[in-house]
């Protein structure tokens, strides 16, 4: 990088004019996405996008996981098969305690992370179950990491089914 040292101090005006040409430089590609072309969703299924960048998500972040019938159905419909299912909601609650509660609090009202109990959503897409899956699976920003790296997709559906109960109260 030594060549850039010679740009010091770079003239302001030039930086401004250069910057317009560089706007497309942000978000051109990421290391994680190099594998995406191999993991494109199968024909006919929904396309899942990153909540912040709108780029297609790598749907194969944990290659060893089993894509359960519920997950495959979700990929097609965007409807959570575990919604309202007591057994899966209970499993989702356990996962929520481990992975989500530190920021969103036990009652879902949020502190570091946003409130999950109302119908106000931080990002427009999160007013749908598909959008909420995209945020949990692929991450939003900062501490709202890609939990698809930590949990199987089936488990994420269980967490979402539990989170849904906050708004039913």
């Amino acid at each position: 990088m030594s060549k850039f040292r010679h740009l010091l101090p770079i003239c302001l005006m030039l930086a401004v004019s250069f910057s317009h040409a560089a706007e497309t430089a942000t978000g051109t590609e990421t290391a994680d996405q190099t594998a995406e072309s191999e993991n494109a969703p199968e024909s006919g299924s929904l396309e899942f996008l990153h909540a912040l960048t709108n780029k297609p998500l790598d749907m194969n972040m944990r290659p060893d996981q089993v894509l359960t019938p519920a997950v495959l159905e979700f990929h097609e419909t965007g409807e959570n098969p575990y919604s309202g299912d007591a057994e899966h909601i209970a499993a989702g609650e356990k996962l929520y305690r481990k992975q989500c509660q530190a920021c969103h609090l036990k009652d879902g009202k949020g502190r570091i992370g946003p409130n999950l109990t109302d119908e106000t959503w931080t990002r427009a897409r999160t007013d749908t179950e598909k959008g909420r899956f995209e945020v949990v699976y692929g991450g939003g920003a900062g501490a709202m990491q890609a939990f698809g790296l930590r949990m199987d997709q089936d488990a994420i559906l269980e967490v979402l089914a539990f989170i849904e109960t906050f708004r039913g109260q």
Partner: peptide, 22 residues
């Protein structure tokens, strides 16, 4: 995680991996 260098946007080398941002 990863290691990044903050560069002027105008000086990003061609082909470099750049962090996603909005």
């Amino acid at each position: 995680g990863a290691l990044w260098r903050i560069m002027p946007a105008a000086d990003v080398p061609e082909g470099a991996v750049v962090a996603d941002s909005v």
